[in-house]
Each structure stands twice: as C-alpha cells, then as structure tokens.
C-alpha cells in the first residue's frame, strides 16, 4: 500500500513538472516575474524626486538598478520583447540617478 502511495506521489510530481515546462508563463512562474517588476516599479517610480535624494540614497538606487539589470539579462525566450523594453526603461532611470548624483557631488 505504501509503495502505491509513494509511486502515486512521484507520478503527481512528474505531471506537475511536465505541466510547468509546457506552460512557462503559467501562474507557477508569475511570482518570479512579478518579483523583479515590483523592484523595477519601486526603483524607477522615484525619478520624479531624483533631485530631492541625498548622494547616499542615489548611490543605493543606482546599485539597485545595476542588480535589476543583471536580473533582466537572465530573461530570455518568449520574454525577449519584455526584456528589450524594460532594459531601455531601466537604462533611462539609472542614468538619471547617475546624472543627479554627479550634479549633487559637483554642488559640494
């Protein structure tokens, strides 16, 4: 009996994995996708206030942009269009923070 349950569980897991690989955009992978998008929204949603940040805050935002860039580079396959668009958006946002940081440092 235990053996049957064991094999049934293995079967269920196998089916789950198969389904996951057949539908890469299924809810099972949504968490990972949303994860970087949420970080993107948090980092790049602050460009309006770029001039209000201290150099330390700006450095932290730039580092977060760099980490996000690395994560974006890992996206491939059907997400190619998404990566292309977000890479452009992220670049604009990172460069604004770098520009503002340079301004702040020259101001001193």
């Amino acid at each position: 009996m235990k053996k049957i349950i064991f094999f049934a569980l293995i079967g269920v897991c196998g089916l789950g994995m198969l389904a996951g690989s057949m539908f890469p955009d299924s809810p099972g992978t949504v968490f990972a996708a949303d994860d970087w998008k949420q970080e993107f929204a948090e980092v790049c949603g602050k460009t309006q206030n770029a001039m209000e940040f201290t150099p330390e805050e700006l450095r932290s935002l730039i580092n977060r942009c760099i980490r996000l860039e690395e994560r974006l580079n890992e996206l491939n396959g059907p997400q190619g269009s998404e990566r292309k668009v977000y890479a452009t958006r992220l670049k604009m946002c990172k460069e604004l923070y770098i520009y503002t940081l340079e301004y702040r440092e020259k101001e001193k």
Partner: peptide
C-alpha cells in the same frame, strides 16, 4: 516629459 526623457540623454551638462 518627466525628468528622464531629457536628462541625461538630451541635456547632459551637469552644471
């Protein structure tokens, strides 16, 4: 335009 549309791509000068 917001900020990032013009800076730094179009207007790069800091000071």
């Amino acid at each position: 335009n917001g900020c990032e549309l013009c800076h730094p791509e179009i207007f790069i000068g800091i000071k």
